[in-house]
Design a protein around this nucleic acid. Structure first.
Length: 561
RNA sequence: UGCCCGAUGGUGUAAUGGUAGCACAACUGACUCUGGAUCAGUUUGUCUAGGUUCGAAUCCUAGUCGGGCAGCCA
């Protein structure tokens, strides 16, 4: 088993993945034949927002375990609360899961598919005397009955209502004869339990709301605690993986399964720590705030940690999958470093992205010996991939180079251009600066054969041929690692930590060959970083997003000075 | 407050009673037509106190710290 290559996930960089506790549980179950040798998982989002990288961890875990152990993974919309869910999110969730590289096959479900069966299950519990219809309001319940541990709670006056009477009321609830909140179905468990979830939790509540899927067919809806174990049991889920906050719900999950007859399977719930990433926020509520307040341009703003944001930014699904594997899986909360995500992305793009020349902040260069110039030079498309070949790049006597690549008074160890100095022009010989004018520098060009001894190589584009492009430079959304925690600790509003420079738009130039890029095409602009064409980009007006910079020791050292 | 869960370098993790390892980050150096990539190397860690044991990151007890629950949200 240990050396079985088929049991390894695709993106673990060749190394065997860590046998985290979920893998151990699954392998133990397989050995013991706990679920008849089956592995069935599910990803159960509530369709009330867009998926973010935290969800990607759950998606990759659930689909990944199924793939790895020859099982299946269901995609299930957990739509048990019509007051919060909307159809518009459903397709975006499906798209994001697909983009991440997973396939649910025919196993796409809605919790609402099971409303009839769930109703029957509640009726069964009532008939058995294990549930009852309670007439207390939510407020009365929490104020006077539920109690606060260590003190026990008080029994609802309806707790011993005869099953026939509860059943009749339940039927009336369903028929719409009672207003929202007037009645609910409660499990009869233990009003003295130190676990609040076992003090007669609500199983069904009245909600006169139109459901995106079932319309007005129902006005009563099951709660998460009742619905989730049932959905899992109906679908034959073997390992129901959820986040840590559901740990205390597990006894109730088990209670529901154990007290119902006729369930087709016996699922088990296991909990893992959700993903936290530094320099961003992850909750749906905060993300929604950023969108609504106009701090970002939308859910798919490339600065957002949403899947659609990362996609637009230029992230590859492979790098996201690799990230979710490499951060591991534990039962304690931690804060992962985005540097890890970025590392995986560079690693991936370095091998795949075609190299191009682009200048973000142009400085005009006039070549004084224009007579001997080639019309074009041959550039390597990808030094990591010989099969990518080469391309011609037009050359001329007027170039743009990066403003950062020239200094009149350079500090020590500056390897670039300065008056009297020389540099290599990437793929195109050498430049020696002879004088500085107001809006340009004048240089002498030497061919590659000149073999000048230089320390640096700089990128360039031909001013006559280059195409103007809008280039959007992104940086982290927040200036501190954990904006919410720090705001709470310092009594501040987390908005104070918003990075004002998270988006800087510049007017640059890209080499002529890029004039007809299609949105989402990814490139490395040499010496600058990885970029991708934005959906806003058209042949007449190019727009690129900087996905991530290249590592830049010089810039870092400069930042320290 | 009660109950539940947890704690390993700066960060994320591995070691399942037997040499504390890996990755990211940081720092050196080599190489290089990307100050990229690659390669070599360095620095840094078992929350505390007791106990069990030939031997404890691992098991036990207590404490400390952190997280979670107290919606008819999920």
């Amino acid at each position: 088993m240990k050396n079985d290559p088929t049991s390894r996930p695709v993106d673990a960089g060749g190394a065997a993945p860590a046998k985290h506790f979920i893998r151990q549980i699954i392998e133990e179950d397989l050995r013991a034949n706990t679920h008849g040798g089956r592995v069935v998982t599910r990803f159960p989002p509530e369709p009330n927002g867009y998926l973010h990288i935290g969800h990607a961890k759950a998606v990759c875990l659930n689909f990944g375990m199924a793939r790895e152990y020859g099982g299946e993974c269901h995609l299930r919309m957990d739509d048990t609360n019509p007051t919060k869910e909307e159809v518009e999110y459903i397709e975006s969730i499906r798209e994001d899961v697909r983009w991440l590289g997973f396939d649910w096959g025919k196993h796409f479900y809605y919790a609402s598919d099971y409303f009839d069966k769930m109703y029957e299950c509640a009726a069964q519990l009532i008939r058995k005397g294990k549930a009852y219809v309670c007439g207390l309001t939510a407020e009365e319940w929490s104020k006077d009955y539920r109690g606060a541990p260590p003190a026990p709670g008080r029994a609802s006056p309806s707790r011993n209502r005869p099953p026939e009477e509860s059943l009749a009321l339940f039927e009336e609830m369903r028929a719409g004869k009672h207003p929202d909140g007037s009645l609910c179905v409660r499990a009869k468990i233990d009003m003295a339990s130190p676990n609040l979830h076992l003090r007669d939790p609500v199983l069904y509540r009245i909600l006169h709301a139109t459901h995106p899927n079932t319309g007005d067919r129902w006005c009563i809806y099951p709660t998460y605690d009742f619905a989730h174990p049932l959905e899992d049991a109906f679908e034959g889920i073997t390992h129901s993986l959820c986040t840590l906050e559901f740990e205390v719900h597990r006894p109730l999950y088990d209670w529901v399964i154990e007290n119902l007859d006729g369930l087709p399977s016996r699922p088990r719930q296991y909990e893992f720590a959700r993903l936290n990433l530094n320099y961003t926020v992850m909750s749906k509520r905060r993300l929604l705030e950023l969108v609504q307040e106009g701090r970002v341009r939308g859910w798919d703003d490339p600065r957002m940690p949403t899947i659609c944001g990362l996609r637009r930014r230029g992230y590859t699904p492979e790098s996201i999958r690799a990230f979710t594997e490499v951060i591991g899986l534990t039962k304690y909360e931690s804060l992962s470093d985005v540097a890890r995500l970025e590392h995986g992305l560079r690693d991936d793009l370095n091998k795949r992205a075609a190299r191009r020349l682009a200048v973000l902040n142009p400085l005009r260069v006039i070549i004084e010996n224009a007579d001997a110039l080639p019309a074009s030079v041959n550039a390597v498309n990808n030094p990591e991939d010989e099969s990518a070949g080469t391309r011609p790049v037009p050359f001329s006597s007027e170039l743009f180079i990066e403003r950062d690549d020239f200094m009149e008074n350079p500090p020590p160890k500056y390897f670039r251009l300065s008056p009297g100095g020389s540099v290599r022009l990437r793929y195109a010989g050498f430049l020696t600066c002879t004088r500085v004018e107001k809006d340009a520098i004048v240089c002498k060009w030497s061919p590659p054969e000149a073999g000048l001894k230089v320390k640096g190589t700089i990128h360039w584009v031909s001013a006559k041929h280059a195409v103007p492009a809008e280039i959007r430079l992104y940086d982290r959304l927040f200036t501190v690692e954990d904006p919410l925690a720090q705001a709470a600790a310092e009594g501040k509003d987390y908005h104070e930590f918003l990075n004002p420079d998270s988006l800087v738009t510049v007017a640059g130039f890209v080499e002529a060959g890029l004039a007809d890029v299609r949105p989402a095409e990814r490139f490395q602009f040499e010496r600058l970083g990885y970029f991708c064409a934005d959906p806003d980009s058209t042949p007449g007006k190019l727009v690129f997003n900087r996905t991530v910079t290249l590592k830049d020791p010089w810039a870092k050292a400069a930042g320290k000075r």
